[in-house]
Design a protein around this nucleic acid. Structure first.
Lengths: 201, 201
DNA sequence: GACTCATTAGGACGATCATCCTAATCATAT
DNA sequence: ATATGATTAGGATGATCGTCCTAATGAGTC
């Protein structure tokens, strides 16, 4: 059954192109050209452009969830896990400088297009938000967990936006440093309060 | 001479539509419909769509410079002036929640389109960056002035991006509070060092 | 009133797009 | 080998777009 494989390749190609050129500016011809199939054959695999977008978003949701799960397993502490998130900025630095953040730019574009898939795209943010919230809860900031999660999200989004505008490598490095310092201060205050609560026992 | 007035109205309408719908997704018909002139008459005022974009960016550059100049006059201290910048998030809160930041989203779109006017759009960021840098220099952070300016820019961009995604009023208010607190701590450390340097005299 | 020149309206053009349709091709089972 | 159903290629269609062209209109001058 090769149909499954072709479908995967279409989603993969569309994913890349939507990121690099934007959703609206990417045509069926573009995707077909990358995949190497004819333009007209597209409708056997996807009934509409919106359906491809939906598949791409679902693919990204799946990949994102897998990534978060892996971090949850591999990194020893909540602090280290949050640093895993921050370090995407470093890992994808070159792509971010050229195309911005895949999640932020997609949500922004769909908001302007008033596209119905917009709510689906925001679920990508939801994944990171809930995951970060969980980490901060584990750090002992139960009350502020969601606010802190949103703060880290916003911070990284801002870094991506300006890094894209100025194509500035050093700026990304500096901001990552700042976030890690900020995060460390937050976790140390937690450790201290944990110490003091330990002392009570 | 009514030509001048019509030209202004075209730029004004294009400015709004580019912000609300994006540049690529806004057609001549859209702009003509808002202005109330015929579609074909457009080429008497502007030879191409890129020319309108250029005019819109120049208009924004002019308005932005005027705004910065006004803040420079009206606000008494560098700290108060930086707060003026932060408070755009509050003043334009509803629009930001619907369409994001006008500068950030335009630069992001033009980056994806690989559009030649991209460098012009970034000059909008340059205006804020240089102005903020000047304020931080006046606050005594001469070495870090540009880094701090970029930091404030990135922070506000991130807030705009997430406020747009989640359409969250309270989040904006919270982040503005955080920025102001952060800024206050920065200026108080300056005042302290100024005090100590005063004491040396 | 006739002439000039700026301004306008509206259609024509070619390109691109998403979508649809149909005939051709392929693999597989009988 | 033939039949069947999945898969493909490529053109047709109608809509939209940026751009161009031209005839009509308007205002101001001689």
């Amino acid at each position: 059954m090769k149909t499954r494989a072709i479908r995967e390749r279409i989603i993969e190609a569309a994913d890349q192109l939507f990121y690099q050129q934007g959703f609206a500016h990417t045509s069926f011809s573009d995707i077909a050209g990358v995949v190497g199939i004819s333009r007209g054959n597209f409708y056997y695999h996807f009934k509409s452009k919106d359906e491809i977008l939906d598949a791409v978003i679902n693919e990204r949701l799946q990949n994102t969830q897998n990534m978060l799960d892996m971090w949850e397993e591999d990194a020893p502490t909540p602090e280290a896990r949050i640093r895993c998130y921050i370090h995407i900025l470093l890992t994808n630095r070159n792509k971010i400088m050229r195309y911005g953040c895949p999640v932020g730019t997609l949500c922004g574009e769909l908001a302007k297009l008033d596209h119905c898939e917009r709510t689906e795209a925001i679920r990508l943010f939801d994944l990171f938000r809930a995951w970060l919230r969980h980490q901060f809860t584990q750090l002992g900031h139960k009350e502020d967990a969601d606010r802190l999660a949103m703060h880290v999200l916003a911070w990284s989004q801002g870094v991506a936006t300006l890094a894209n505008a100025y194509e500035d490598k050093d700026f990304i490095d500096q901001e990552i440093q700042m976030i890690c310092t900020w995060l460390e201060a937050y976790t140390q205050s937690t450790k201290r309060s944990q110490h003091s609560s330990d002392a009570l026992h």
